[in-house]
Design a protein around this nucleic acid. Structure first.
Lengths: 173, 173
DNA sequence: AGATTTTGGTTCACTCACCGAACCGTCACG
DNA sequence: CGTGACGGTTCGGTGAGTGAACCAAAATCT
């Protein structure tokens, strides 16, 4: 995507952001990384993204210092969010909230809670009970009312996310 | 963009949002709408987007009830954000902030201020002085330190935005 | 250790979206 | 009544996304 490589506002921050996370599939990949997905196959299975595209996106994100390839358990390399990548959470959060607000018929599919007191987190990122902004690592993803019953042939990621799970914590070794 | 029309998580809110605002150019168009751009030619000139693509995006956004075609001054039709479209502000804001944070060398190009007290607005959308969340209509776009000097051949939109301007307020009749 | 399966990609042909330039009818204005 | 601005549409060329097949290295099993 050569989007704004020649865009007039070279210094336009929105365009700069979109150069990196504005391509097809990219933000879904980043969201999965927040959910704890770290392996190539898990991204592919959970998102249904063509493997060639996934290869390209992971390379772009790694290049941009949003993800990093690090040795995982069993000496296999895995992809992990960098500190810079973690600062993308408000973006993922804002888009998800907008979708929930306007397109979630039976309520949101996932509800985010403050791990410390289990209270849901508001759209602005503050805990509804203690009213403090919640750190990304202290956010719990929990199944919401809009999440249907899991079926037998769900991929491992979907299965793992049917139970509460802490953001950024690896879904599997 | 057929992104997640067949996406497994039909009810995934992030994917639903990206179906609408995830296409190339779309969010830049929406941002310009917040800035008060309302005419076809102004979007085209300011963004440099191919006119055929612009036609397609405006139709998609209108279809999705993010923009609306309304009669403007001089009985010419113009595009305006709907209430649903206005709720996209946190998305635009989050992406812009991320870009500012990581790619704005000389500081942000635009600074958002609370019209009531002229104090800058923090990343979470609250005024740094009164600490209250600021309504979109009460946000002032002002030139920031990263904004270079305007040149003669700037398009009307760029020129108009070189002075403080209230969000959603039409840039021209 | 050797065989087998899983994993993390690559390759390839195909289609479709994007690009940029030219073109065109309508509306506003002198 | 002519002229230019405006809001699109049309069209050929190109690059990106798609899905299936293929492949080598790593992990697992016997």
């Amino acid at each position: 995507m050569t989007l704004p490589r020649d865009y007039t506002g070279l210094s336009c921050s929105l365009a700069r952001s979109l150069e990196i996370v504005g391509e097809r599939w990219t933000l879904l990949i980043v969201r999965d990384a927040f959910y704890g997905v770290r392996r190539f196959g898990d991204f592919a299975a959970h998102l249904g993204v063509p493997r060639a595209v996934l290869t390209d996106r992971l390379a772009t994100l790694t290049e941009a210092d949003v993800l990093a390839r690090v040795p995982g358990a069993g000496r296999r390399e895995v992809y992990e969010l960098t500190p810079k990548g973690v600062t993308l959470w408000p973006v993922v959060r804002a888009l998800t909230c907008w979708g929930d607000e306007h397109y979630a018929e039976g309520g949101p599919r996932r509800v985010y809670r403050h791990a410390a007191d289990d209270a849901p987190i508001a759209a602005d990122g503050r805990c509804t009970r203690c009213e403090l902004p919640v750190e990304v690592r202290d956010i719990l993803v929990t199944p919401g009312p809009g999440l249907g019953p899991g079926s037998e042939d769900d991929d491992p990621v979907t299965v793992a996310l049917s139970r509460p799970h802490r953001l950024l914590h690896p879904l599997r070794g």
